[in-house]
């Protein structure tokens, strides 16, 4: 096995609530796979508690939530809190999709680490994740 793939980044991709738009999340899943990451899908209609539990069982590095309908201002802060309470607050929490600018400060304050809005390039997401990981590893050594 090539050296670089020995410890692939693990990313949970989830959709919360009644949002059933899956095109974006599917495209991102394939892009991350091509970039050498392990992507875990949870399926649709997840609650914050379900996503937090799956993130812990799967011990992912990153939790990515796709949001293309309203509800993120309530569900994402809950998810961030549940992860923290379970001792998993160190996981990177990302959200992508339709996130109005006025919601962004609230989400960031609640513990969302990064917001990708509509039109974000998958390459930007991959670059961001790789840079985050490099910073993590530098911090630990």
């Amino acid at each position: 096995m090539p050296q670089g793939t020995e410890r692939p980044l693990r990313v949970l991709l989830a959709k919360l609530g009644m949002d059933t738009h899956t095109v974006g999340i599917t495209v991102i899943a394939h892009a991350l796979r091509e970039a050498g990451m392990e992507v875990i899908f949870t399926g649709l209609k997840q609650t914050p508690a379900m996503v937090a539990t799956a993130a812990i069982q799967e011990d992912v590095d990153v939790v990515g939530v796709s949001s293309l309908s309203a509800g993120h201002t309530r569900s994402l802060p809950t998810l961030a809190r549940l992860l923290r309470e379970a001792g998993a607050g160190d996981k990177l929490l990302l959200v992508g999709g339709v996130i109005p600018e006025e919601d962004q400060p609230l989400l960031q304050e609640a513990g969302v680490d990064k917001i990708f809005t509509m039109g974000a390039d998958t390459r930007d997401i991959i670059t961001y994740l790789n840079e985050w990981r490099a910073a993590q590893q530098a911090g630990h050594s």
Binding site: M1, G4, R33, E34, G36, I40, Q46, M50
Partner: peptide
């Protein structure tokens, strides 16, 4: 993937009711 080393792991989608 034998090329990138990445993977899409989707089995738990069908087991979501036990989460």
């Amino acid at each position: 993937s034998p090329f990138s080393g990445g993977a899409i792991l989707g089995d738990r989608v069908r087991m979501a009711r036990h989460t």
